[in-house]
């Protein structure tokens, strides 16, 4: 059963074509990594899936129901089921870690404060962040903030988790800790769509890798195949550049 099914998705920003007839399905428990050059439309694709931006043609279905269906008229209903974590963490600076994590469960999902805090502490513990429950975002390192941002989204118990270059703003020594969390989540069977420039990570965690260029999926396949024997010349070029930059 496909959790997410994207069919013939097309999007323009003004007159620029940003997504060009994209077809992509993500099965339950599957981890799909999206790779591609800057400006190829990776972020836009994720943002379309949870309606942060509108699209022009095609359909996006969640568990067989179009996200333009009456059921998702109020986009909060969609956001309850599809979580996203951004490159820039975007933690709420005026709340401590615990409040950041419990806000959405309490206000959106109607969980009691006691229950949501217990769940938050369990997640913080699981990801090695329990000692920071009372800390404010500005007291944390970038890597710690990003882990809190992931926990904050996980606390809403989403069916699908989307990650948009969550390690791109981090110092190299902090990246490992964040990626480890994602590998744990993958191992637990979380359905994920991951935009990343960390090819080593994509190779380890992905069930399938999609290469985007100019808003089109040029090539997709299991990581072993796509990384070692890419078919499309553009994919080969892209990977060659990555290797030269020392990131694979």
């Amino acid at each position: 059963m496909d959790r997410v099914r994207i069919s013939n998705l097309t999007k323009y920003y003004g007159t620029t074509l940003v997504l060009d007839d994209v077809n992509l399905s993500v099965a339950e428990h599957e981890v799909v990594c999206l790779i591609g050059a800057s400006g190829s439309g990776k972020s836009t694709l994720l943002r379309c899936v949870n309606k942060l931006v509108p699209f022009d043609h095609g359909t996006i279905e969640l568990d067989g129901v179009s996200i333009e269906d009456e059921q998702f008229r109020n986009s909060n209903e969609l956001h309850k089921r599809v979580g996203i974590v951004f490159q820039a963490f975007n933690l709420f600076p005026h709340m401590n870690v615990l409040d950041n994590v419990t806000l959405a469960p309490r206000k959106v999902h109607g969980v009691s404060r006691k229950e949501s805090e217990a769940n938050a502490r369990r997640l913080l513990d699981l990801f090695g962040m329990s000692e920071f429950a009372a800390a404010f975002p500005e007291q944390l390192s970038g890597g710690q903030q990003q882990r809190v941002a992931i926990i904050r989204t996980m606390a809403t118990n989403p069916d699908v988790l989307m990650l948009d270059e969550i390690t791109a703003a981090l110092d190299p020594e902090l990246i490992g800790g964040v990626l480890r969390i994602i590998k744990d989540l993958a191992a637990q069977g979380m359905t994920m769509m991951i935009v990343t420039h960390e090819m080593g990570f994509a190779r380890e965690v992905a069930d399938r890798v999609c290469f985007l260029e100019d808003g089109r999926i040029l090539e997709e396949g299991p990581p072993a195949q796509l990384f070692s024997t890419p078919e499309h010349p553009r994919t080969q070029q892209f990977l060659q550049r990555i290797i030269e930059a020392g990131r694979l």
């Binding site: 949870n50 942060l52 986009s75 909060n76 956001h79 309850k80 979580g83 996203i84 951004f86 820039a88 975007n90 933690l91 709420f92 600076p93 005026h94 806000l103 959405a104 206000k107 959106v108 999902h109 941002a149 904050r152 989204t153 809403t156």
Partner: peptide, 24 residues
Amino acid sequence: GQRAAAKALGLSQWQTMIYAIVPQ
């Protein structure tokens, strides 16, 4: 980014205002 984060967490426009934007 604060608005986007609040929205993505499922907060309504009103809740986003009250819990995320106004205090800041």
